[in-house]
Simulated assay, not measured.
Amino acid sequence: MYNKLKYLFLTVLLAASCSGKDQGEPANPPPPGIVPKDGVFEQRGEGSFVYTGYEPLKDKPITLYYYIPSGGEVERMPVLFSMHGAERDGTIQRNAWKYFAEKYGFVVLAPEYSKTYYTENDYQFGSVCRSSGSDVLNEESQWTYQTVEALFDYFKSETGNTSAAYYLFGHSAGGQFVHRFLLAMPGARVERAVAANPGSWTFPCVEGITGTDGKTYGWPYAVAATPFADAAHLTAFFARKMYVQIGTADTDENDSSLPKDAPSMAQGPHRYARGRNFFAACTTVAGESDMPLRFVLSEVEGVGHSTLWMVYGKASVTNPADTEARGKNSAFNLLFE
């Protein structure tokens, strides 16, 4: 995939050098190919619009922030969805990726799920159940996860993009979203995914997990009492190419945004420990059930709780435009190399 991106980048350069652009040509021309019927993806570079196209949740708008490279054929570009954390700011995700997108020729789609319309249960937990801690399931059409697939179809229909699948990244609460999305949506068209520094995980324990209060918990902390507890769902989940990306310095036990409820605390004292424990549990369950496991544990040395640092794989990024200065376990490398 990395070689493909390099090829696309060279194509962009050749196209730019041979274009003979007139002085009257717009600074940000629309993507080539079909003309977007809604006009929302006409602008190159940074853009945004409010999306209400998923009919079952049309009363819960999503602001989609995006980045389209300044050159190249949008129809042929890979597509990356980047999911925000609990701060609910899609611009953080778009901006963390835009220099990579510009250089290597892929599109960034960063949906923003406002707290006005999406609670923690709706976002981090996908609205799979009526409320956090409830075992009453919502209809699948009401799951927030469905909006990602709908947005992908919308982008393809608007631009003529021919991608059969997309790439998926999420940091913190976004990392919660990503791994639960893959568990709940076995048919989702995801090529590779990175779940970075989630504060809590859904463990593949069909009997649930025991919290620090001695009680047994299911969704969203374990698959117990959900449709995802059967062998078919777990097999499909483990078959995903998902990177459990954790910063070795994400160890602040007093972080105000760290979930401290009983089932989360049972997963470990901080995010770094919780990620390692989740991966170990998946390895154990997959091994005992003879299910192939494609998950990869990727530890980013010296990095704490930061979207930008996980994307670049380094504890300090002095010049985000210098994409070549990234670390070996950067989210970019995990997804595209």
Rank of each mutant, 00 (worst) to 15 (best):
G170D: 09
F81H: 08
C18Y: 07
D38C: 03
D153I: 00
L14C: 11
A16E: 14
C18M: 13
V311R: 04
K314T: 15
R189S: 13
H84I: 09
N319G: 01
G24Y: 12
M77L: 11
F152C: 01
S131T: 10
D22K: 14
S70P: 00
W97F: 08
G105K: 08
V303F: 11
D59W: 00
D230A: 00
L297S: 05
M77K: 12
D213L: 00
D38R: 12
H233N: 14
M310H: 15
E299S: 08
V317I: 12
V285L: 06
Y99M: 03
A195F: 02
L137H: 07
F237I: 04
W143Y: 15
A286L: 04
T235P: 00
A188S: 14
D153Y: 06
F155Q: 01
K21G: 02
W97R: 09
A193N: 07
S316D: 09
L293G: 02
Y166F: 15
T52N: 11
L234T: 00
E73G: 10
W97M: 05
N121M: 01
L335D: 07
Y66M: 09
A280D: 11
K103T: 14
S264K: 02
F279Y: 14
A27T: 15
D89S: 11
N121S: 05
A173N: 11
R274S: 04
D252F: 03
S48H: 12
D122F: 07
D59E: 14
R271P: 00
T63N: 08
H270K: 02
T323S: 05
V108D: 11
S257Y: 13
I246K: 03
V311M: 08
N28M: 10
F279S: 03
L335S: 10
F278R: 02
G33K: 01
G313M: 10
G247E: 05
L5Q: 08
A232H: 04
P292C: 06
